[in-house]
């Protein structure tokens, strides 16, 4: 009886030491990874040569963290918002200027239906398996969030379902959509599309108005 307890305790202590050791060695790297991921996401949506300062603002949801961005003489605000999608919470990062026009946007996290809702993060690639493994990596941006550039979050955002998806449209078509503050939906995935819009015209608008005062 004593022996059982002693052995179990010894093994558990040895285990705890081993785990603690590994934790100490990896803790900083892990924290660094998360910070790096956040910074990389911000880089995607910010204008050229921007400096970022974290800040907080009081809203109906309590204290919300956001980023105050300066590029040249212009000021922008970046918010991280989440909204309920089809089967997961869609988390996006959006950067707007002082009048509420979107300057950049990217979807950070989602677990929507593969092949449908997951297309909010889709990067259209022309490469196939055999020529994709070798050669330089493509640097395209997800078309779904790219089309939000120039959209105003202060006006209602419309969804266009009849003209096809944005990446296949011509420049004049794209310009006319922008005038109407409309974006194209992902074919067969209205709920995920709506969720992304809800995130920025709901929460992001709310925070933006709180920041602007």
């Amino acid at each position: 009886m004593i022996r059982m307890t002693v052995v179990l305790t010894l093994i558990t202590c040895a285990a705890a030491l081993l785990i603690a050791f590994t934790n100490v060695k990896t803790k900083d790297k892990i924290a660094g990874q998360q910070a790096a991921a956040q910074a990389a996401a911000l880089q995607q949506i910010l204008p050229e040569g921007a400096t970022v300062t974290p800040a907080t603002v009081q809203t109906d949801d309590g204290t919300v963290n956001y980023w105050s961005v300066t590029a040249g003489n212009e000021t922008y605000y970046a918010f991280r918002v989440g909204s309920r999608g089809y089967s997961s919470t869609i988390s996006s990062l959006v950067c707007v200027d002082t009048v509420g026009i979107v300057v950049g946007m990217v979807v950070l996290e989602q677990s929507e239906t593969p092949g449908l809702g997951t297309r909010v993060q889709e990067v259209l690639s022309k490469k196939y398996f055999w020529n994709g493994l070798i050669g330089p990596k493509e640097q395209a941006a997800p078309w779904f969030t790219e089309q939000f550039k120039g959209i105003s979050i202060e006006k209602p955002i419309g969804i266009e379902k009849t003209k096809g998806e944005w990446h296949a449209l011509s420049e004049p078509d794209r310009a006319s959509l922008k005038e109407k503050n409309t974006i194209t939906a992902i074919t067969g995935s209205t709920i995920s599309t709506r969720a992304v819009i809800k995130g920025i015209s709901g929460k992001a608008l709310q925070y933006f108005q709180a920041v602007r005062g």
Partner: peptide, 19 residues
Amino acid sequence: VVIATFVTIVQLLMKAYLP
């Protein structure tokens, strides 16, 4: 306990190097 120890180590290593 032994298995859980190694799983935790793998978890930490993955979080650090293959997030």
